[in-house]
Design a protein around this nucleic acid. Sequence first.
DNA 1: GTCTATAATTTGATAGAC
DNA 2: GTCTATCAAATTATAGAC
Lengths: 183, 183
Amino acid sequence: MAEKNYSEKAQEILNAAELRMRQGGFDAVSYRDLAAAVGIKASSVHYHFPQKADLGRAVVERYTTKLLAFLGPPDDPSESAKTRIVRLCAAYQHALIHEEVPCLCCVLGAESLDLPSVVSEAVSHFFVQMIDWTEQALGDRSDAEALAKYLISTLQGTMITALTLKQPQLLQDAKPYLLRLID
Amino acid sequence: MAEKNYSEKAQEILNAAELRMRQGGFDAVSYRDLAAAVGIKASSVHYHFPQKADLGRAVVERYTTKLLAFLGPPDDPSESAKTRIVRLCAAYQHALIHEEVPCLCCVLGAESLDLPSVVSEAVSHFFVQMIDWTEQALGDRSDAEALAKYLISTLQGTMITALTLKQPQLLQDAKPYLLRLID
DNA sequence: GTCTATAATTTGATAGAC
DNA sequence: GTCTATCAAATTATAGAC
């Protein structure tokens, strides 16, 4: 969870690893391919991330930090709950439509049972943080926690069907169903 | 889609492959491990399923058939739409809670971009069929198709968060949010 | 930080005997 | 249907030079 200072090359490696992981999961990442992508040799990638589990955890932690930064504070009093949830939906749409790959933790979460424990713990922590953000974004209401879990779950699942069916607009279509639950 | 007649050993292989795929995705399945699981050699597994993509497609197609059989007809006039959707939810709960692994196509759908095309097409077909069943189950209403896509997406996503957070009751918690959308 | 070299293992797949 | 034997390729990872 602590802030990490990655060198420029380490960041390039993380970029390549994140892309590959979002396409095909943890096993789809290989040191050799990463090395080629950033213009060094596989053994040099091991210098930056000795074990693959380290690399996986680093990718997930950086992804979590990036996404929370994109979402901004969940408790800005000048915003309505609805505005915040619209922004949450926009983040998911941006991932699939502009980056053309699903949410990292959608992919890794699905193969959770088979991941190195440090990686699956990082994925679990991602969901905890996302649900926490959403719960705060919903403001004061008795079902905030349950609704937050429901919203995050639905966005994750919609991403999978949208991806598999090649219907990115499913994320847009799900929005009214979600927003009618707010306020 | 045609009915397949698998030998007893081929079915054992499919069972082992489905379990492994639901735990860790397509890449988690190896001929050597499958062979050990059913008590033969890897080369003999190739006799039943020459290419891994064949095996993957067979697993997905059989899974689709099994699940639709479990769900039964979506248009039994003696049932309400709500009763049918409750059964749909029960199928997802059974998968995660009793079989202790997520839905096969939840896992494969997430790594859709990286699958052999015959496999990703089978996964896509699974979702088409599940959405079609749900659409019929909802009966005559103008938003049946959109709602069906939304329900299937939510169940898939809830399965991922329930799995990752080790909170299987999330599937139960999502039910009221879904059922309030029916009739 | 990056390299060469290498080790040890696993993988999907095939040929051919029985 | 199952076996032995084998293959070529890919994988994670380490040792040590520069």
